[in-house]
Deep mutational scan, measured.
Amino acid sequence: MPVRRGHVAPQNTFLDTIIRKFEGQSRKFIIANARVENCAVIYCNDGFCELCGYSRAEVMQRPCTCDFLHGPRTQRRAAAQIAQALLGAEERKVEIAFYRKDGSCFLCLVDVVPVKNEDGAVIMFILNFEVVMEKDMVGSPAHDTNHRGPPTSWLAPGRAKTFRLKLPALLALTARESSVRSGGAGGAGAPGAVVVDVDLTPAAPSSESLALDEVTAMDNHVAGLGPAEERRALVGPGSPPRSAPGQLPSPRAHSLNPDASGSSCSLARTRSRESCASVRRASSADDIEAMRAGVLPPPPRHASTGAMHPLRSGLLNSTSDSDLVRYRTISKIPQITLNFVDLKGDPFLASPTSDREIIAPKIKERTHNVTEKVTQVLSLGADVLPEYKLQAPRIHRWTILHYSPFKAVWDWLILLLVIYTAVFTPYSAAFLLKETEEGPPATECGYACQPLAVVDLIVDIMFIVDILINFRTTYVNANEEVVSHPGRIAVHYFKGWFLIDMVAAIPFDLLI
Rank of each mutant, 00 (worst) to 15 (best):
V3E: 14
R4L: 14
G6H: 12
G6K: 07
H7Y: 06
H7E: 14
H7W: 11
V8T: 15
A9K: 14
A9F: 14
N12R: 14
T13E: 09
L15V: 14
L15I: 15
L15D: 01
D16K: 07
D16H: 12
T17H: 08
T17C: 13
I18G: 01
E23L: 01
K28C: 14
I30Y: 01
I30H: 01
I30V: 13
I30C: 06
I31Y: 01
I31M: 08
I31H: 01
A34K: 06
V36K: 15
E37V: 07
A40R: 11
I42T: 01
Y43V: 01
N45H: 01
G47E: 06
G47F: 03
G47C: 01
F48A: 01
F48N: 01
C49F: 01
Y54N: 01
R56Y: 03
R56S: 03
R56A: 07
E58C: 01
E58F: 06
M60A: 01
M60N: 03
Q61W: 08
Q61H: 09
R62I: 01
P63N: 12
P63G: 08
P63Q: 07
T65Y: 08
C66W: 01
H70N: 03
G71R: 01
T74Y: 01
Q75G: 12
R77N: 10
A78D: 12
A80K: 10
I82A: 01
A85I: 01
A85N: 01
L86K: 01
L87M: 10
G88N: 13
G88C: 11
A89V: 13
A89C: 13
E90C: 08
R92I: 12
K93I: 08
I96D: 01
A97S: 11
A97Q: 15
F98N: 01
Y99T: 02
D102H: 01
G103H: 04
L107K: 13
C108W: 01
C108I: 01
D111V: 07
V113K: 09
P114A: 01
K116R: 13
E118H: 11
E118C: 06
D119R: 06
G120Y: 06
A121H: 10
V122R: 07
F125K: 01
F125T: 08
I126W: 05
I126R: 03
N128S: 12
F129N: 01
F129R: 01
F129P: 01
E130S: 06
E130N: 14
E130A: 09
E130W: 06
V131P: 11
D136H: 03
D136T: 11
V138D: 14
G139N: 07
G139H: 15
P141Y: 06
H143T: 11
H143Q: 11
D144Q: 15
D144T: 15
N146D: 03
H147D: 05
R148L: 08
P150R: 13
P150Y: 07
P151A: 13
P151L: 15
S153H: 06
S153K: 14
L155Y: 06
L155E: 09
L155V: 15
A156Y: 06
P157C: 09
R159G: 10
K161E: 14
K161S: 06
R164W: 06
K166W: 07
L171N: 15
L171V: 10
A172L: 01
A172V: 01
T174W: 15
T174P: 15
R176N: 05
R176Q: 08
E177Q: 12
S178I: 01
G183P: 09
G184I: 14
A185T: 09
G186S: 11
A188L: 06
A190N: 05
A190V: 13
A190Y: 11
G192A: 12
V194G: 04
V194I: 05
D197Q: 06
D199F: 01
L200G: 15
T201I: 04
P202E: 10
A203P: 15
A203Y: 05
A204M: 04
A204L: 15
P205Q: 12
S206H: 15
S209P: 05
L210E: 06
A211P: 06
A211T: 13
D213N: 01
D213W: 03
E214H: 11
V215P: 06
T216M: 15
T216N: 09
T216Q: 05
A217V: 07
A217Q: 14
A217E: 13
D219N: 15
N220I: 07
H221C: 13
V222A: 15
G224R: 14
L225Q: 08
G226W: 05
A228P: 14
G236V: 15
P237C: 10
S239E: 10
R242M: 11
R242T: 15
S243G: 13
S243T: 13
A244L: 04
A244E: 14
P245I: 07
P245C: 07
L248F: 14
L248Y: 04
P249H: 13
P251F: 03
R252D: 15
H254I: 13
L256V: 14
L256W: 12
L256R: 12
N257G: 12
P258M: 13
D259H: 04
D259Y: 09
A260H: 15
S261C: 07
G262L: 07
G262C: 04
C265K: 14
A268W: 12
R269I: 14
T270H: 06
T270N: 14
S272F: 07
E274G: 08
E274V: 11
S275H: 09
C276H: 14
S278I: 14
R280M: 14
R281H: 11
A282H: 14
S284D: 09
A285K: 07
D287M: 07
D287L: 12
D287E: 14
I288L: 09
I288H: 05
I288N: 14
E289N: 04
A290V: 07
M291D: 11
V295Q: 15
L296D: 07
L296E: 14
P297I: 11
P298M: 06
P298H: 03
P300I: 14
P300R: 08
R301F: 01
A303N: 10
S304I: 11
T305L: 13
G306A: 12
A307C: 14
M308P: 06
M308V: 12
P310T: 10
L311K: 12
R312A: 13
R312E: 06
G314Y: 08
L315D: 15
L316E: 13
L316P: 08
N317T: 08
N317Y: 12
S318F: 09
S318C: 12
T319R: 05
T319N: 09
D321L: 05
S322N: 15
D323M: 05
D323A: 12
L324Q: 15
Y327D: 07
T329V: 07
T329W: 04
S331D: 15
K332R: 07
I333Y: 09
Q335R: 08
T337G: 12
L338S: 14
F340V: 15
F340K: 14
V341F: 04
D346W: 05
D346S: 14
D346Q: 11
P347H: 15
F348L: 07
A350I: 09
P352E: 04
P352D: 03
S354N: 15
S354I: 04
S354P: 14
D355Y: 07
E357R: 05
I358F: 15
A360K: 04
P361L: 05
P361Q: 12
K362L: 11
K362R: 13
K362I: 09
I363N: 03
I363A: 09
R366H: 07
T367P: 12
H368R: 12
N369G: 06
N369W: 11
N369K: 15
N369S: 14
T371R: 07
E372Y: 04
E372C: 07
K373M: 12
K373D: 06
T375P: 05
T375S: 07
Q376G: 08
Q376H: 07
Q376R: 05
L378W: 07
L380G: 04
L380S: 04
L380P: 01
A382T: 01
A382H: 12
V384C: 02
